[in-house]
Computed example of a mutant assay.
Amino acid sequence: MAGKSKKTISFILIALAVLFVLIWGLPFYIVREDQQAVVTRFGQIVASRTEAGLYIKVPFIDEVTEYPSLILSLDGDAERIPTRENQFIIVDTTSRWRINDPALFYQSFKTVKEADIKLSDIIDSATRTVITRNRLSEIVRSSNIINEVHTDTETQLVEMEDDDSAQIEALVNAGTTNETISKGRDRLCAEMADEARKMVGEYGIELIDIVPRQIKYSDELTSSVYSRMIKERNQVAQAYRSLGEAKRAGWLGRLENEKRTIESEAYRISEETKGKADAEAARIYAEAYNRDPQFYEFWKSLESYKTTMQNFDTTYSTNMDYFKYLYGTNGNR
């Protein structure tokens, strides 16, 4: 009998504990720091919670729908959009947004996935509207610093007018002109966001920004752009070759002039040396002749024989004076 009483008491205590937990837990719900919630009763919104904490609801009647309170990102699809110059480009954007009115958001979408679909359409429309009103240069550039760099380069070219590097820089930058932008990519991104905010405010969404992740030419323009770039680079390459040929011709001309100058100077020096040598030889010959005229005449005749006789196998002459030292009576002295 005592054992049955103990079992009954244990069962009652367990039942009371379970009932206490059910009664205590069901009316309460928790909203975390990274969440916000909407409480609905029979499909009607009765409360929205944007602060973290512990809240009470009617058990089995109220339904709590939770949404993130963090900043969310949305990556759009790549779109083919014409610019103001009617040049088609591919634009891929990303945007940041968050839910600032959970009740209004619940009435508009119910789920974040549905909001992504609607927000993507709005952002695509705003992006197309802004891009079609502006030039390509406004979309891809944020400032006019490239024009300032070009001006600085021109100033340097003036300062280096006689330098080869100045000529090369002039060839590389020949015909390069850059448009001056009045807005720039950052301002256009702000315009895209402002355009989209006109349509998302009624959905309980705060759009933070829209940023292009990628901007590129469409496929049909890519080949023509590459062809133009190749043509421009070929022109620059030809300009380099022309500059090289001009330098080569100048160096060869200077080399030829220096060669002629050196040869002329060498010839002048050689002629002066020959003249001095001939004068010295004549002096020596004259001195030798004055010492012994007969020996001098004999020596010169032998030199002449050595020069002329070796060119002939047989010599016939009626002028015996020339051979007087060979056949004359005095030749054997």
Rank of each mutant, 00 (worst) to 15 (best):
R197M: 10
A196E: 11
G201Y: 01
T177I: 13
E159N: 14
E169I: 11
D164P: 09
M199C: 09
D164T: 03
I210T: 06
E202A: 13
S182T: 09
I181M: 08
S165D: 10
T180N: 12
V172Y: 10
A170M: 12
N173F: 13
T177R: 10
A193P: 01
L207A: 08
R197Q: 11
S182F: 05
G175Q: 03
G204T: 08
Y203Q: 03
T177G: 07
N178P: 01
E202C: 00
I168Q: 07
A193Y: 01
M160V: 03
G175R: 00
A190S: 09
A190E: 13
T176I: 15
A166Y: 02
I181H: 01
A190F: 01
I205S: 09
A166K: 03
L157S: 09
D163C: 07
Q167V: 06
Y203G: 02
D209C: 03
E195P: 00
R185S: 06
V158E: 14
L157W: 10
C189F: 04
A174T: 06
E206P: 11
N173I: 04
T177P: 04
G201K: 08
K198D: 06
G204I: 01
A193K: 11
A174P: 07
I208A: 03
Q156W: 15
S182W: 06
A170S: 12
K183N: 14
D152M: 15
S165K: 10
K198V: 02
V200C: 03
D163H: 14
I208L: 07
M192H: 04
G184T: 02
D186G: 10
D194L: 13
N178M: 11
T153L: 15
I181R: 01
T151N: 15
G175I: 05
E169Y: 13
D194N: 11
A170H: 09
Q156H: 13
K198H: 03
R197T: 07
A174Q: 13
K198I: 08
L171R: 04
L157V: 12
G201I: 09
M199W: 13
Y203V: 02
D162V: 00
K183H: 06
I208Q: 07
D209F: 09
T153F: 13
L188Q: 05
E195K: 08
E195Q: 02
C189H: 08
D194K: 04
E202I: 12
I205H: 00
A193L: 08
G184N: 01
D186W: 03
V200F: 07
E195W: 00
E159S: 11
V172I: 12
V200W: 01
E191L: 10
A196K: 04
E191A: 10
E159I: 11
E159C: 05
S182R: 12
L207P: 01
D164S: 09
L188V: 02
T153A: 15
S182I: 10
A174C: 08
D164Q: 05
D194E: 15
E169T: 13
D164W: 01
D163F: 07
V158R: 13
T151D: 15
A166T: 04
Y203F: 11
A174D: 13
R197W: 03
R185T: 07
A170N: 09
D186K: 04
V200H: 05
K198L: 09
R187A: 13
E206S: 12
S165Y: 07
Q156K: 14
D186E: 08
